[in-house]
Protein backbone atom coordinates (compact mmCIF):
# COMPACT_ATOMS: atom_id res chain seq x y z
CA UNK A 1 0.00 0.00 0.00
CA UNK A 2 1.23 3.44 -0.80
CA UNK A 3 2.31 5.38 2.23
CA UNK A 4 0.14 8.35 2.91
CA UNK A 5 1.40 11.51 4.53
CA UNK A 6 -0.08 12.01 7.99
CA UNK A 7 -3.33 13.89 7.80
CA UNK A 8 -2.44 16.48 10.36
CA UNK A 9 0.35 17.59 8.16
CA UNK A 10 -1.09 17.56 4.70
CA UNK A 11 -4.39 18.99 5.81
CA UNK A 12 -3.62 20.81 8.99
CA UNK A 13 -7.19 20.26 10.09
CA UNK A 14 -9.85 18.28 8.33
CA UNK A 15 -12.33 21.01 7.71
CA UNK A 16 -16.00 20.34 7.29
CA UNK A 17 -19.03 22.59 7.50
CA UNK A 18 -20.51 20.81 10.45
CA UNK A 19 -21.08 23.10 13.43
CA UNK A 20 -21.25 22.05 17.05
CA UNK A 21 -24.39 22.57 19.09
CA UNK A 22 -24.56 23.38 22.77
CA UNK A 23 -27.00 22.97 25.59
CA UNK A 24 -29.17 25.96 26.59
CA UNK A 25 -27.14 26.52 29.72
CA UNK A 26 -23.90 26.73 27.77
CA UNK A 27 -25.52 29.05 25.28
CA UNK A 28 -26.65 31.19 28.16
CA UNK A 29 -23.11 31.31 29.47
CA UNK A 30 -21.93 32.36 26.03
CA UNK A 31 -24.49 35.11 25.91
CA UNK A 32 -23.33 36.35 29.28
CA UNK A 33 -19.85 36.80 27.80
CA UNK A 34 -21.24 38.55 24.76
CA UNK A 35 -23.16 40.94 26.96
CA UNK A 36 -19.92 42.45 28.25
CA UNK A 37 -19.03 44.07 24.96
CA UNK A 38 -20.69 46.64 22.73
CA UNK A 39 -23.05 44.90 20.35
CA UNK A 40 -21.03 45.87 17.27
CA UNK A 41 -17.89 44.46 18.88
CA UNK A 42 -18.92 40.85 19.22
CA UNK A 43 -15.47 39.71 18.25
CA UNK A 44 -14.25 40.77 21.69
CA UNK A 45 -15.96 37.70 23.11
CA UNK A 46 -13.87 35.40 20.94
CA UNK A 47 -11.27 34.41 23.52
CA UNK A 48 -13.69 33.84 26.42
CA UNK A 49 -15.89 31.80 24.10
CA UNK A 50 -12.98 29.76 22.83
CA UNK A 51 -12.41 28.71 26.44
CA UNK A 52 -16.01 27.60 26.65
CA UNK A 53 -15.60 25.60 23.44
CA UNK A 54 -12.39 24.07 24.73
CA UNK A 55 -14.03 23.09 28.00
CA UNK A 56 -17.12 21.65 26.33
CA UNK A 57 -15.40 19.81 23.52
CA UNK A 58 -12.03 18.96 25.03
CA UNK A 59 -10.16 21.04 22.48
CA UNK A 60 -10.92 23.67 19.89
CA UNK A 61 -12.21 21.39 17.19
CA UNK A 62 -13.46 22.13 13.73
CA UNK A 63 -17.14 21.99 14.67
CA UNK A 64 -16.49 24.37 17.55
CA UNK A 65 -14.69 26.82 15.29
CA UNK A 66 -17.56 26.66 12.81
CA UNK A 67 -20.02 27.32 15.58
CA UNK A 68 -18.06 30.32 16.85
CA UNK A 69 -17.62 31.80 13.40
CA UNK A 70 -21.37 31.75 12.94
CA UNK A 71 -22.08 32.89 16.47
CA UNK A 72 -19.84 35.94 16.12
CA UNK A 73 -20.34 36.65 12.39
CA UNK A 74 -16.73 35.89 11.57
CA UNK A 75 -14.94 33.89 8.92
CA UNK A 76 -13.45 30.62 10.16
CA UNK A 77 -10.09 31.98 9.17
CA UNK A 78 -10.61 34.90 11.55
CA UNK A 79 -11.14 32.45 14.36
CA UNK A 80 -8.14 30.47 13.21
CA UNK A 81 -5.78 33.43 13.24
CA UNK A 82 -6.72 34.26 16.80
CA UNK A 83 -6.90 30.78 18.22
CA UNK A 84 -3.46 29.80 16.96
CA UNK A 85 -1.87 32.86 18.53
CA UNK A 86 -2.64 31.92 22.10
CA UNK A 87 -0.82 29.09 23.75
CA UNK A 88 -3.67 27.99 26.00
CA UNK A 89 -5.80 26.70 23.15
CA UNK A 90 -5.36 23.20 21.85
CA UNK A 91 -6.24 22.44 18.28
CA UNK A 92 -5.83 18.74 18.78
CA UNK A 93 -7.14 16.33 21.29
CA UNK A 94 -5.20 16.13 24.54
CA UNK A 95 -5.44 14.13 27.73
CA UNK A 96 -8.12 14.74 30.30
CA UNK A 97 -5.59 16.23 32.68
CA UNK A 98 -3.29 18.77 31.16
CA UNK A 99 -0.19 18.97 33.33
CA UNK A 100 1.59 22.21 32.64
CA UNK A 101 4.93 22.56 34.37
CA UNK A 102 6.42 26.03 34.56
CA UNK A 103 9.89 26.05 33.07
CA UNK A 104 10.84 29.70 33.40
CA UNK A 105 13.76 30.99 35.41
CA UNK A 106 12.53 31.02 38.99
CA UNK A 107 10.97 27.59 38.73
CA UNK A 108 13.92 26.27 36.83
CA UNK A 109 16.45 27.31 39.43
CA UNK A 110 14.18 26.00 42.15
CA UNK A 111 14.03 22.50 40.72
CA UNK A 112 11.75 22.31 37.72
CA UNK A 113 14.00 19.85 35.85
CA UNK A 114 13.64 17.26 38.61
CA UNK A 115 9.89 17.74 38.71
CA UNK A 116 9.56 17.39 34.95
CA UNK A 117 11.67 14.30 34.89
CA UNK A 118 9.72 12.83 37.71
CA UNK A 119 6.37 13.49 36.09
CA UNK A 120 7.51 12.15 32.75
CA UNK A 121 9.00 9.03 34.25
CA UNK A 122 5.94 8.42 36.30
CA UNK A 123 3.63 8.72 33.33
CA UNK A 124 6.03 7.19 30.85
CA UNK A 125 5.77 9.93 28.29
CA UNK A 126 7.84 12.76 26.94
CA UNK A 127 6.94 16.39 27.32
CA UNK A 128 4.38 17.25 24.69
CA UNK A 129 2.90 13.76 24.67
CA UNK A 130 -0.32 12.22 25.88
CA UNK A 131 -0.54 8.92 27.72
CA UNK A 132 -2.03 6.03 25.79
CA UNK A 133 -5.15 6.06 27.96
CA UNK A 134 -5.66 9.73 27.02
CA UNK A 135 -5.63 10.64 30.66
CA UNK A 136 -2.56 12.89 30.91
CA UNK A 137 -0.75 15.31 28.69
CA UNK A 138 2.47 16.93 29.89
CA UNK A 139 3.62 20.33 28.66
CA UNK A 140 6.24 22.79 29.69
CA UNK A 141 4.92 26.32 29.88
CA UNK A 142 6.32 29.76 30.54
CA UNK A 143 6.03 31.64 33.84
CA UNK A 144 2.66 31.22 35.49
CA UNK A 145 3.11 33.80 38.24
CA UNK A 146 4.07 31.40 41.03
CA UNK A 147 7.71 32.25 41.18
CA UNK A 148 7.64 32.76 44.93
CA UNK A 149 6.26 29.28 45.39
CA UNK A 150 8.42 27.56 42.82
CA UNK A 151 8.57 24.97 41.43
CA UNK A 152 4.99 24.71 40.36
CA UNK A 153 2.66 23.13 37.88
CA UNK A 154 -0.86 23.82 36.75
CA UNK A 155 -3.23 20.96 36.07
CA UNK A 156 -6.20 22.18 34.18
CA UNK A 157 -6.75 25.50 35.89
CA UNK A 158 -5.53 24.39 39.33
CA UNK A 159 -2.28 25.70 40.73
CA UNK A 160 0.01 23.26 42.55
CA UNK A 161 2.92 25.05 44.15
CA UNK A 162 6.03 24.44 46.26
CA UNK A 163 6.36 21.07 44.55
CA UNK A 164 8.52 18.21 45.67
CA UNK A 165 8.58 14.83 44.00
CA UNK A 166 6.51 13.38 46.89
CA UNK A 167 3.97 16.12 46.51
CA UNK A 168 3.78 15.47 42.78
CA UNK A 169 3.12 11.80 43.48
CA UNK A 170 0.34 12.67 45.84
CA UNK A 171 -1.25 15.07 43.39
CA UNK A 172 -1.05 12.73 40.43
CA UNK A 173 -2.39 9.83 42.45
CA UNK A 174 -5.39 11.86 43.53
CA UNK A 175 -6.38 12.62 39.93
CA UNK A 176 -9.17 10.57 38.53
Amino acid sequence: MASVAPTYYTNQVQVTDEAASFSPSVLEEMDSHLAKYPSERKRSALIPLLFVIQRERGYVDNAGVNFLAKFLDLEVTDVWETVTFYSMFNLRKIGRHHIQICKTLSCRVMGEPEITEHVCNKLGIYVGETTADEKYTVSLVECLGSCGTAPMMQIGFDYHEDLTTEKVDRILDSLK
Binding site: E75, T77, D78, W80, E81, T84, F85, Y86, S87
Partner: peptide, 9 residues
Protein backbone atom coordinates in the same frame (compact mmCIF):
# COMPACT_ATOMS: atom_id res chain seq x y z
CA UNK B 1 -12.43 38.44 1.40
CA UNK B 2 -10.17 37.93 4.40
CA UNK B 3 -9.39 34.51 2.99
CA UNK B 4 -5.74 34.43 3.97
CA UNK B 5 -4.46 35.27 7.41
CA UNK B 6 -1.50 34.85 9.70
CA UNK B 7 -1.67 31.96 12.12
CA UNK B 8 0.53 30.81 15.01
CA UNK B 9 2.89 33.06 16.88
Amino acid sequence: EDAIEAGNR
